[in-house]
């Protein structure tokens, strides 16, 4: 991995993008990497734009906010439209396939994935969308091994929900073809 990666997770309040961001930070800690995780949201408990960020690094991290992320997950049109503008050069986007690709984006830097639909119809619970996304992101970017990621997920879910979250994680990974993973992993390298 290069020195420092900045990941941004954006959606609407209640979709669990903060938890997705925390899980990657937890996986980083388990792997002995440096990480800083933070979030920004409005006063609403549900709805409104919610944004979370994870910085991964081999070196100490001081400034805790992301300015130009290397990766963006967008689960709503509003978050995609607004945050796709501030991507780092060569940055990658994973957007839910229900969204419209904003003008000016190079389709080669965008992975359109049916995260929300998979959570609803394959896993059977809409609220697992964030874990589906975690599985898909990790497969696409090749960040952590499966065991580390599963342990990170387990540390942040209620007891008794291990099975459904594991299914969500696997369902997410299956959304990414080996070709896509190879293409995206190259861009990280």
């Amino acid at each position: 991995m290069k020195g420092r990666y900045e990941l941004r997770f954006a959606g609407s309040g209640g979709q669990g993008v903060i938890l997705a961001s925390v899980i990657f930070a937890e996986a980083a800690v388990i792997s002995g990497m440096k990480t800083v995780q933070s979030q920004a949201y409005g006063p609403e408990a549900r709805g409104g734009v919610s944004k979370a960020e994870t910085i991964l690094s081999r070196e100490p991290i001081w400034y805790s906010k992301v300015t130009a992320p290397d990766f963006l997950l967008a689960l709503t049109q509003e978050s995609l439209d607004s945050y796709s503008k501030t991507l780092a050069a060569g940055g990658l986007i994973m957007m839910d396939s229900s969204l419209r690709l904003p003008e000016g984006l190079d389709p080669a830097q965008v992975l359109s994935v049916p995260v929300l639909q998979t959570a609803r119809e394959v896993v059977g619970k809409a609220f697992t969308a964030n874990i589906v996304a975690v599985g898909a992101i990790n497969k696409a970017l090749g960040l952590f091994d499966g065991e580390t990621l599963l342990e990170a997920v387990k540390r942040h879910i209620p007891a008794g929900t291990e099975d459904i979250n594991r299914r969500a994680l696997d369902a997410g990974a299956e959304l990414i073809s080996p070709e896509q993973a190879a293409a995206f992993a190259r861009k990280w390298g």
Binding site: A25, A28, V29, K34, T35, V36, Q37, S38, Q39, S64
Partner: peptide
Amino acid sequence: EIVGHMREG
């Protein structure tokens, strides 16, 4: 808020 809401290892 910067430090309160930030997570680190």
